[in-house]
Amino acid sequence: MSRWIIGFMLVFTSLAFAQELEVKMLAQGSALIDINGKQRMLRTGNTSPEGVTLVSADSQRAIVEVKGERQTLVLNRRISTRFNKASSAEVRIASARGGHHITSGRINGHPVEFMVDTGATTVALNYLEAERLGIDFLAGQEVQVSTANGKAKGFLVSLERVAVGNIELTQVEAIVSTSRSPEIILLGNSYLSRLNMAVEEGVLVLKARQ
């Protein structure tokens, strides 16, 4: 029997719509979500009548998509994504186990998972992820990178599009390591430095600049 985890609420709001979601239970590949007062049992890939799609779920987190925007839900955190104007965007990322901020996103339109790293100069990923995303990293500038296992060869490239939630930036520098590190894609300062950032009670707030 799957072990269910209880207790997370997420609120999506915009000028055009408002969705209030409360995750009642989590298990591998499924989640019980209260959507505007109606409970829906969703499995990975299912979309509720209200338009909420469960992208993935496990005992620690779920990723949902609403109106084309994805959010990572972490237990016992309340997150809101707001659209104050058509040109203004804000994303809130709760801290996961260990204090790291992990969120879903997109590189060149492909879904990925990021770990926010304010100490990283650029977005950083390993060659396996780069190959999966169709990045021709061997055409980039060769550089040396430091990994958890020591020094490794890397390639400096420019990513056409990098997005977290509805904040998408173009021409974002990244380094592709020829080792298997980092295991999760690091969202570094080549993306973060182009946004306004703040931390509110452990929640990282990213805001697009006007």
Results as ranks from 00 to 15, higher is better:
92 R>K: 15
138 L>P: 06
49 P>K: 15
188 G>N: 08
110 H>M: 13
113 E>T: 12
84 N>C: 00
197 M>D: 02
77 R>T: 06
62 A>K: 08
74 V>N: 06
106 R>V: 01
53 T>Y: 11
89 A>T: 12
140 G>Q: 03
162 V>Y: 04
171 Q>F: 03
37 G>A: 07
169 L>P: 01
147 T>W: 09
187 L>F: 11
89 A>F: 11
183 E>L: 03
39 Q>P: 05
195 L>G: 07
21 L>F: 02
209 R>W: 02
176 V>S: 10
46 N>Y: 11
159 L>N: 02
33 I>K: 00
169 L>R: 09
129 E>R: 13
23 V>I: 06
111 P>E: 14
205 V>S: 12
189 N>I: 02
191 Y>L: 10
114 F>Y: 13
79 I>M: 13
18 A>S: 14
52 V>I: 13
135 I>E: 02
156 L>F: 08
186 L>H: 01
203 V>N: 08
152 A>V: 08
140 G>V: 02
59 S>N: 11
56 S>C: 09
143 V>D: 04
24 K>M: 06
192 L>Y: 06
128 L>V: 14
157 V>L: 00
55 V>C: 01
6 I>P: 03
164 V>E: 10
164 V>N: 00
148 A>H: 11
43 R>C: 06
180 R>T: 06
35 I>Q: 08
116 V>A: 12
44 T>K: 09
164 V>Q: 07
13 T>H: 07
42 L>Y: 05
126 N>G: 03
153 K>S: 04
29 G>Y: 04
20 E>Y: 00
91 V>A: 14
100 H>K: 07
143 V>N: 06
134 G>F: 05
5 I>L: 04
157 V>G: 05
46 N>C: 04
173 E>K: 15
3 R>G: 11
3 R>H: 10
32 L>C: 05
178 T>P: 08
29 G>K: 08
110 H>Q: 15
133 L>W: 00
34 D>A: 01
130 A>C: 03
119 G>E: 07
113 E>F: 04
139 A>K: 15
106 R>P: 01
183 E>Y: 05
102 I>F: 02
189 N>S: 02
20 E>T: 12
161 R>D: 10
185 I>R: 03
140 G>I: 11
92 R>D: 09
9 M>N: 11
197 M>I: 12
3 R>Y: 06
24 K>F: 08
51 G>Q: 12
94 A>F: 10
131 E>S: 14
118 T>F: 11
107 I>R: 11
104 S>D: 13
85 K>I: 12
128 L>Y: 09
41 M>V: 06
114 F>E: 12
185 I>Y: 13
4 W>L: 10
109 G>L: 05
168 E>C: 01
201 E>Q: 13
192 L>E: 03
158 S>P: 00
111 P>F: 09
10 L>V: 04
157 V>F: 02
206 L>Q: 13
73 L>V: 09
194 R>V: 02
182 P>D: 02
4 W>D: 04
179 S>F: 03
161 R>W: 01
39 Q>N: 05
115 M>T: 06
135 I>K: 12
61 R>M: 06
55 V>Y: 11
106 R>Y: 10
89 A>P: 08
197 M>R: 15
60 Q>I: 09
112 V>W: 07
105 G>T: 02
72 T>E: 10
128 L>D: 00
54 L>F: 03
202 G>D: 05
146 S>W: 07
107 I>T: 11
29 G>W: 00
110 H>A: 14
101 H>N: 10
65 E>G: 02
174 A>Q: 13
104 S>N: 09
71 Q>D: 09
44 T>L: 03
24 K>L: 14
27 A>C: 07
